[in-house]
Every structure is written in C-alpha cells, then in structure tokens.
C-alpha cells in the first residue's frame, strides 16, 4: 500500500511539471481571437521573420550535425588526455547567458573581429545578416547535437564494431557501415533538438543580428511597439508553426528506426 502511494506521488509531481509546461502555451492559443492571428499572419514582415527563423534553424541544425558528429564519435569511442575537459567545453554554451554568448561572438565575427574582417574580404558579413543569425544559433545549440550523437555512438555494442572488423571492414568502413547507420536515430534526434533550440533562440541572435529579424526578435519588437495583443497573436502564430514542424521532424526522425524493428 505504501508503495502505491509513493508512486502515486510520482504521478502527481510529474503532472505538475507537465502542466507547468503546457498550460501557458495552450492558454496563449486559446486566448487569442482567431481574427487577430489571421491579421498578424497577413503582415508581410511577420511572415518573413517566421520563414527566416525556420530556414536559419534548419541550416544551423545541418551544420551542427556535420561539425558535431565527428567530435561526438571521438568522445564516444576514443580515449584521449583531458577528455573530461573537452566534454565540459562541449557543454559550456548551456551555462553561458545567451546575450553574453552573442557579445563574445560579436568580438570574433563582428565587423572588427578577426574572422569578421577576413569574411569581409570575401564580401561576407556576420553582423546583421542571416550568417550572423546562424552563428548565434549554432553556438547555443551545438551541445544538444554533440551530446545526442555521442550518446548514440556510446549505445552501440562495441562487439558489433569488432564483428565488422573481423568481417573485413577497416576502422573507416566500420564507422560508415556500422556506427553511423546504427546511431542515425540519435543523430536525427540531435538535429531535431538543435533545430528546436535554434528557432527558439533570442539572446544571442538579437546581439548578432537585429536585422534581418527572426521571429522571436519580431515578436519582441511588436511587444515594444504595438503592445501585448499584437505580440501575443504573433507569438501564437510562431508557436503553431514551430511546434508543428518540431512534431513533424520528431516523427520522421523516429519513424525509419521503428519501421525496421517492426518489419515482421
């Protein structure tokens, strides 16, 4: 009996945190008159900002996968000196306030930063551009990518990789034919998380690029200028679009794996 009450408490506490997440978001939807959402959706600059957010977040997620997967594999499968330090560096962006991240990035990628100046020679600018938005998003979301992929590689039974070696695969082929396919789901999860984190980013992005405006920046501007009603309507619209893409990506990320296991 004591056990039942104990775990009933777990359900209760679990419901509290779920409700805490869900109620404000659902409430935001329900309290916005449909007419004002339609109204906001008709605004050219709001639509452009949501579109920009999605595009930059997708690019960031793919970039994070390309840059993060090799490090994730090394962390999972090789042992090297100062590994713990490197793991801490990977997690560092989680602990840095995002405005601070934006300012630090500006010093490197900004007009007078070392990389910013080199980029200018090629006609590229990280400041006030989509490129800058991507840089800001990448900085704050990379831990999600690397950790998800690392956990994926770690979860592969080492004997599968050994078996592949005895079947004639070189270490490079083992990675391409065994490790990568088997951790694909984790990598996709990492991509989805990175996308979600990127689309939500405000602090680092607003420092790097106020213009062009991403959706969170646009909503903030509407909040300052037009008041809470318009901002809330735009927020509801953004929520609708980002959540539906997030759910859709998640579904596709998990689906291939599920199909394989339920073939029979």
């Amino acid at each position: 009996m004591g056990n039942r009450i104990f775990f009933l408490l777990f359900w209760l506490v679990g419901s509290i945190i779920l409700a805490f997440t869900l109620i404000p978001l659902v409430n935001l939807f329900l309290t916005q008159p449909l007419s004002s959402i339609v109204n906001v959706a008709g605004m050219q600059d709001v639509r452009a900002s949501i579109y920009l957010s999605m595009i930059t977040a997708v690019i960031t997620a793919l970039l994070a996968a390309i840059l993060g997967t090799p490090l994730a594999y090394l962390l999972a499968r090789r042992s090297f000196p100062h590994q713990a330090v490197i793991e801490a560096i990977v997690d560092l962006p989680l602990a840095v306030p995002h405005t601070v991240a934006g300012i630090s990035l500006l010093f490197i990628f900004g007009r007078n930063g070392p990389i910013g100046r080199i980029a200018q020679h090629f006609g590229l600018s990280f400041w006030g551009s989509s490129l800058g938005i991507i840089i800001g998003m990448l900085f704050v979301s990379s831990p999600y990518m690397i950790n998800a992929a690392r956990e994926g590689f770690e979860s592969i039974d080492i004997r599968l990789e050994k078996a592949a070696r005895t079947l004639g695969a070189t270490p490079r082929q083992v990675f391409l034919h065994v490790s990568l396919p088997l951790s694909l789901r984790s990598i996709l999860t990492g991509i989805v998380l990175t996308y979600a984190r990127s689309i939500a980013e405000f602090g680092a992005v607003i420092v790097m690029a106020y213009y062009p405006q991403t959706a969170p920046v646009k909503i903030y501007e509407l909040f300052l200028s037009g008041g809470i009603e318009q901002a809330a309507a735009a927020a509801a619209l953004l929520l609708l679009i980002t959540l539906s893409t997030f759910v859709l990506f998640r579904y596709f990320a998990y689906k291939p794996r599920l199909k394989q296991y339920h073939k029979n």
């Binding site: 039974d157 050994k162 078996a163 005895t166």
Partner: peptide
C-alpha cells in the same frame, strides 16, 4: 580486417 579470421561472439553480434 586483414587476418581473414571468422569470429563468433557470445551474443551473436548481428547488426
């Protein structure tokens, strides 16, 4: 990979 040996593992190690 260059030894041409067959290795059978305790838990089959199938992909």
């Amino acid at each position: 990979e260059a030894r041409k040996i067959g290795f059978m593992f305790q838990d089959n190690a199938l992909f």
